[in-house]
Design a protein around this nucleic acid. Structure first.
Lengths: 165, 165
DNA sequence: GGTGAAAAGAGGGTTCT
DNA sequence: AGAACCCTCTTTTCACC
């Protein structure tokens, strides 16, 4: 199931799809220098072996009315593995929490939270996050603006022309 | 050019494409309950008005050999707007920096950094980030694991989003 | 990996409400 | 205006070499 090795073409495919996840298979094949059918076979294999976890439209949060993005640093009272997992599970059920990373050091988790407005965020913070079991401390930092937002991983793909359909 | 208002169907389209950015237009049309051509027109309008900023494959960083994800809290010596912008510009040219958010409070920026290994990260930190102009302090937190990774915005629960059918 | 062909989807034009 | 039906061209996705 898991592919043992990726060659240059696979890496190029991944880089291109990370940049433009909706490009057609024929365009992709042309870009990486092979014909469409083997290209599609590679993409399917990359999907099934888990190298590609999914495809997502990147939406503009602000213009859609989600004007509050906050990073929350969370400390837990107990760091037993079962308690860490329990917190992650709980956080997974909170739609406003978009990302959750476990950290080393004094802070246990960093959460990226997206809300429509301050009221929604405050309500979430005081009624859901802070009172959650085992939560010892929550320190929040509001984002003022986003200076860079690149997906995934630094493949180092050269700048690409817009789509040709 | 810029759409003034989004109706329920537009919101459903955005939610579906955020979840599966590669679904075909006919599938999407079926899901939101309209026929394919107007559905495609809506998608194009959403792209051109900036509600959809792009489409990206979500790749598995670890299995691709990017084993180090770090959050860096950066403080600048000068917070003049021109200096903030200059820092953002500089960071935009650093491939290892995937996201950069300006924050309120004592920390000025939070950066998400992805590297292949510790050596690559250390080299980046000591040779690129810390010596960058105007950087006063850098505090890094290594991630141990990722507990949740959802794209974009919490459409999921409808605060008032009705169901068209 | 490439080739050729059947099936499916994209995108344009027109009509209807 | 905006949505739906029809039509043609492109893309996807098989078969097999």
């Amino acid at each position: 199931m898991t592919k043992v090795k990726l060659d240059d073409i696979d890496l190029q495919i991944l880089a291109h799809l990370q940049t433009d996840g909706r490009m057609t298979n024929v365009d992709l094949a042309r870009q990486v220098g092979i014909s469409a059918p083997p290209c599609l076979r590679r993409v399917r294999a990359l999907e099934e072996s888990g190298y590609i976890r999914g495809y997502h439209a990147e939406v503009d949060a602000e213009s859609l009315g989600f004007e509050v993005t906050v990073f929350a640093m969370v400390g837990l009272a107990s760091q037993a593995e079962s308690d860490l997992v329990a917190f992650e599970e709980r956080v997974r059920a909170m739609p406003l929490v978009r990302e959750c990373w476990m950290l080393n050091g004094e802070i246990d988790f960093i959460l990226k939270i997206v809300a429509r407005d301050l009221a929604e965020f405050q309500s979430f913070l005081t009624r859901e996050l802070t009172p959650a079991p085992n939560v010892a401390s929550v320190k929040t930092s509001f984002t003022i603006r986003n200076g860079k937002h690149e997906p995934g991983v630094p493949f180092g793909l050269p700048p690409r022309a817009p789509r040709a359909r």
